[in-house]
């Protein structure tokens, strides 16, 4: 059985020293090993941005796509080969700005895969512009007087869109993050894990210390029930989304692949493509 080291490759990430994305990379590698995967059983599909590079930093099948489109690509991979464990990953710009339409619909569709958002509340690779996750008043190169647009609440949107697994974590908490990714992989359906991943270069507001001061770990909240959707929504609203842990999980709903009529239980990628002559003649009937 593979250990987390086997999910490492010899590529040096181009992230800045101290970037929150490093621990997300480590958590993915650990979680993959912990759930018993071999590298060839994992496909990591990513978008564009600093975080998008993650697909090249995990020893697995990797697909570095285009900005905002990691999710449709990843769903295509999973539908083609349901034996693969599929993780899509990208930044908050990728998933909540340019790719927001796909995010909402991937949640609704509920294909069995995991989506990890590396949320740093800023555009890093383009060197510091505002993101939909930036706070109102946040000053960046594109908002020199401070952002006037409302901060997006992606996890509330996810719940409203019918999410079956919603979690949030923080780069500094490798243990919690690894565990949540494992739970996400093991969840049947679409699992969304938003991770606060500080940008040490361009975001001087939402720093490691700032998060440590402001987030509440749900494990410390007495009576919190992650199967209660109303409670999850209420908690997110009460705390302005500043909570970590498993926020909501619905294990009653089957994944897309298991609900779509006739969909193959085996990997389609390994199907014989040949149409039998009988089938072919049968198909012609309606045109006669």
């Amino acid at each position: 059985m593979a250990t987390f080291k086997e999910f490492r490759n010899n590529v040096k990430p181009n992230w800045c020293p101290g970037c929150g994305d490093f621990s997300i990379q480590a958590a993915i590698q650990r979680a993959a090993a912990n759930v018993g995967l071999e590298p060839e059983q994992l496909a990591v599909i990513s978008g564009i941005g600093c975080s998008g590079r993650i697909s090249g930093y995990v020893n697995a099948y990797g697909f570095h796509g285009i900005h905002g489109r990691a999710l449709p690509i990843a769903q295509g991979v999973k539908l083609a080969n349901r034996d693969l464990t599929v993780i899509a990953s990208g930044g908050d710009g990728d998933g909540f700005a340019i790719g927001m339409g796909h995010t909402v619909h991937a949640i609704r569709r509920n294909v069995n895969m995991t989506y990890i958002v590396m949320d740093n509340q800023i555009y890093g690779l383009t060197k510091g512009q505002t993101s939909p996750r930036s706070a109102v008043g946040f000053k960046t190169k594109s908002t020199p007087e401070g952002s006037v647009e409302t901060t997006l609440a992606p996890l509330e949107i996810a719940l409203a869109a019918g999410a079956t697994f919603v979690a949030q974590s923080f780069s500094s908490d490798l243990k919690q993050l690894t565990s949540l990714i494992e739970q996400g992989i093991n969840h049947e359906g679409f699992s969304l894990i938003n991770v606060f991943s500080p940008c040490v270069t361009f975001n001087k507001i939402n720093t490691y210390d700032w998060f440590k001061e402001n987030i509440v770990n749900l494990a410390t909240v007495e009576g919190y029930d992650p199967t209660n959707r109303v409670m999850a929504m209420t908690k997110l609203m009460e705390t302005n989304g500043m909570i970590t842990g498993l926020i909501y999980q619905d294990t009653s709903r089957r994944s897309y692949e298991n609900l779509v009529p006739g969909f193959s239980q085996e990997s389609l990628a390994h199907h014989d493509l040949t149409l039998s002559e009988d089938d072919f003649n049968g198909l012609l009937k309606e045109f006669k």
Binding site: A43, R69, G76, A80, F263, H271
Partner: peptide
């Protein structure tokens, strides 16, 4: 199956993902 996607961007990129994975 046919997946009715949210837009044509998803339609084409999903097809890329599935073709990449061998279908």
């Amino acid at each position: 199956t046919v997946v009715q996607t949210e837009d044509e961007i998803a339609a084409a990129t999903m097809a890329i993902g599935a073709n990449y994975a061998g279908v």
